[in-house]
Design a protein around this nucleic acid. Structure first.
Length: 426
RNA sequence: GGAGGGGUUCCCGAGUGGCCAAAGGGAGCAGACUGUAAAUCUGCCGGCGAAGCCUACGGAGGUUCAAAUCCUCCCCCCUCCA
């Protein structure tokens, strides 16, 4: 089974330039294939997981993935799919971000023995000579054609800066560069990159007289139409420092019913026969599939140990039904109820004396970060959303006392149904 | 370069001297109902607090008892013309 078949049955493919040829290519040869990642932050988020998984699949099938960090194009800003010009980051920021992303990608891909490559387009883009570039590369681009590209057309309504207008040329040049220097025959990426990819293929044909290929992934939205990963508030990062493994796990557990099967296919390596089992589960039983999804996804990003801890914490906090042995047999999630006390719930340590005096509940909620401010904590408690050890807090300044500590020296706080926090007493 | 129109709280978007911490929608959070789901209904949704105070309407000044609202200068964006 070729990686193309894998992509196909797992729902990775949105568009391809030439299905027949790409199918053959991936079946008959081992190729080099690249995806670009923008260094706009120190970490990638869930939105980048589809491309990452795609590269991992490529590698598993013996192809060589090339992860391109857009250290050079990041200086420009990609207008595709954006309604406004992106904020331009400084060179230092971009460089720093690029380093972070490199480290992050190493967790998914094996870069040893050139089994995968990491390149940064700053290496070749920042030394370009403007006049030469215009003469050699720019001459192949028709402005008329560029303006008709969807990615630019949207922006023409609101205004498009010249700097961004050049983005397509640079990305096309990237492809050409990798085609020539790394024998890279295919580019993959989100569907919003389609126009840019075609520009690269075009450029390669004009300048090298040879054929290159591209494949795009669907732009993931939840079945509610919300985009995944990147929201102002709830960005789910791949970096454990920005989104804890526990929260990461929780994100997947809370996925909408309608998305479970699709996400199992995209974000885990479970065999498709098992993934399809999700379809048989209805109502509350579907939560078992969500546990499996969360466990496997967390395992891939944070490792098995973290996935286990996150699962334990979830079992402890919610009354989770264990996943039946017959379901998803390839998944390594524990099948029995979990006994021991162990938790990766976010926690905080308070001193014995503080609790002897008692801490007003709203202050503690604000301090733990469960609430963003004391005002928010008051409102939360007033509305009945604050709990200590599963008991609803009645008054906003109710004192949290030492007497509420359990045998393990812990006091559990809860905001609503889903957000838990552990206060440890020292 | 010229003319016109804009920049409002996380986003969209009302507001043109006091009734404005600022309508409405979205997003978010909580409650009810549930299955840690969705949908629906309800409440909340700048900060600190008892009242009240502070911080906010692109930036800096000014007028006024009082300014998101008026004036001056500056920055940025859009449209049309060159």
């Amino acid at each position: 089974m070729s990686v193309y078949d894998v992509f196909f049955e797992r729902g990775f493919i949105e568009q391809v330039t030439d299905e027949g040829l790409i199918r053959e290519l991936l079946q008959d040869r081992k190729i080099n294939c690249y995806i670009g990642f923008d260094p706009t932050a120190t970490s990638l988020h869930i939105g980048s997981l589809v491309p990452i998984m795609a590269l991992v699949h490529m590698q598993q099938h013996g192809h060589r993935p090339i992860a391109l960090i857009g250290g050079g194009t990041g200086l420009i800003g990609d207008p595709s799919g954006k309604t406004e010009m992106r904020q331009i980051l400084t060179r230092e920021q971009i460089n720093f971000n690029a380093q972070c992303l490199q480290a992050q990608l190493s967790k998914y891909l094996d870069f040893g023995q050139r089994k995968a490559l990491m390149v940064n387009n700053a290496d070749w883009l920042t030394t370009l000579n403007y006049i030469e570039f215009l003469r050699d590369i720019g001459r192949h681009f028709s402005v008329n054609k560029m303006l008709s590209a969807e990615s630019y057309r949207q922006r023409l309504e609101k205004g498009l800066n010249f700097i961004e207008f050049n983005y397509m040329l640079l990305q096309a040049y990237d492809f050409l560069y990798l085609f020539k220097h790394q024998d890279c025959a295919m580019q993959m990426g989100g569907n919003d990159q389609w126009g840019n990819m075609l520009a690269g293929i075009d450029l390669i044909r004009r300048m090298e007289g040879r054929m290159a290929f591209s494949l795009t992934f669907p732009l993931l939205t939840t079945s509610q139409g919300h985009k995944m990963g990147k929201t102002e508030k709830g960005t789910v990062w791949l970096d454990r420092g920005l989104t804890s493994p526990y929260d990461y796990y929780q994100y997947w557990v809370n996925v909408e019913d309608a998305d479970v099967e699709r996400f199992l296919a995209l974000f885990t390596f479970l065999p498709m026969e098992e993934v399809r089992q999700a379809r048989m589960l209805v109502d509350a039983d579907l939560n078992m599939a969500k546990s499996v999804l969360a466990f496997e996804a967390t395992k891939i990003t944070h490792g098995e140990a973290e996935a286990l801890s996150a699962w334990q914490a979830a079992v402890k906090a919610f009354h989770v039904k264990p996943v039946e042995a017959a379901l998803f047999p390839s998944c390594t999630i524990p099948r029995a109820a979990f006994q021991e006390e162990a938790s990766t719930m976010p926690s905080l340590t308070k001193s014995h004396q503080d609790l002897e005096k008692g801490i007003p509940a709203f202050e503690l909620f604000a301090e733990t970060g469960l609430c963003a401010s004391k005002g928010e904590a008051r409102r939360l408690i007033a509305q009945g959303g604050g709990y200590v050890n599963d008991t609803q807090i009645k008054v906003f300044d109710e004192k949290i006392m030492l007497s509420q500590m359990d045998a393990h020296g812990e006091i559990r706080l809860r905001k609503g149904k889903k957000h838990h926090f552990m206060v440890r007493v020292k």
